[in-house]
Each structure stands twice: as structure tokens, then as C-alpha cells.
Simulated assay, not measured.
Amino acid sequence: MFPASEERRTGKVLLDTTNTELAKKMGFERTDKYMYSKSVEWDEVKIIEERKPYTLD
């Protein structure tokens, strides 16, 4: 799983990771000292949103 966001200028999905080995294996490009990113088309990903309940005490 990767955090995902929409690239405004291309409309593609931007995936990010700090896992160097996974980034190399999946073809990500280094975009910062510890960050790797990859742009993909929407039909190449399955978006899963995880929600966790919380309470305010």
C-alpha cells in the first residue's frame, strides 16, 4: 500500500514511499532525500480507504 494523491497538472495518481527496496523494485524515482514517487494512471491502481473509529475523551 502507498499513500496516493491526484497530480493536478496530469490528473494521474501520485504514489509515494520511503521504502528504498520497494521503490527500486516497483520503479519509483527518488524525489527527495528519503522519498520516492511514481505517477500512474487511475486504472493501474485500486484505491482503498481505511477509516478507524475514534472517541474524544
Rank of each mutant, 00 (worst) to 15 (best):
I48Q: 14
R8K: 14
G11Q: 07
E6P: 04
K25Q: 01
L14F: 04
S5V: 09
E50L: 15
E29W: 06
T20Q: 09
R9I: 10
P53Q: 06
E49T: 15
V13H: 08
F28E: 01
S37N: 10
D16K: 13
R9D: 14
Y54A: 01
T10S: 06
T55D: 00
R8W: 08
M35G: 07
L56A: 01
V45K: 13
M35W: 11
K46L: 09
M35Y: 09
A4P: 08
E41I: 05
I48P: 05
T18F: 11
K12D: 03
T10Q: 01
M35E: 11
I48N: 13
P3W: 12
E21H: 03
D57K: 02
F2I: 12
T17D: 08
R51Q: 10
S39G: 00
E50Y: 14
K46R: 08
R8D: 09
L14Y: 05
Y54H: 00
M1N: 15
L56P: 00
D57R: 01
G27E: 08
E6Y: 01
W42P: 04
P53K: 06
F28P: 00
P53S: 00
F28R: 07
M26E: 10
D43L: 04
E49M: 14
M26N: 02
V45Y: 12
K33M: 12
L22R: 11
A23L: 04
Y54T: 04
Y36N: 06
L22G: 04
L14G: 05
L14R: 12
R30I: 03
T17F: 07
S37H: 11
S37A: 14
F2G: 06
K38T: 03
P3T: 09
D16F: 09
R9V: 11
L56Q: 03
D43I: 05
S37Q: 14
D16P: 01
V40M: 13
D57L: 02
A23M: 05
F28G: 00
K24G: 04
M1G: 15
I48S: 14
K33D: 10
V13Y: 09
P3G: 10
R8V: 07
G27P: 07
E29I: 07
K12L: 05
K24S: 02
E21C: 03
V40C: 13
I47Q: 09
V13R: 13
M26D: 03
K24H: 01
D32P: 03
K12N: 03
K33P: 00
M26T: 05
R8T: 11
R9K: 15
E50G: 13
P3Q: 15
R30E: 03
S39N: 04
E44C: 10
K25L: 00
R51M: 11
Y34D: 11
G27F: 08
T18K: 12
E44Q: 15
G11Y: 02
R30N: 02
M26F: 06
G11K: 08
M1F: 13
A4L: 14
E29K: 15
E44I: 10
T18Y: 11
A23D: 04
A23E: 03
K46H: 04
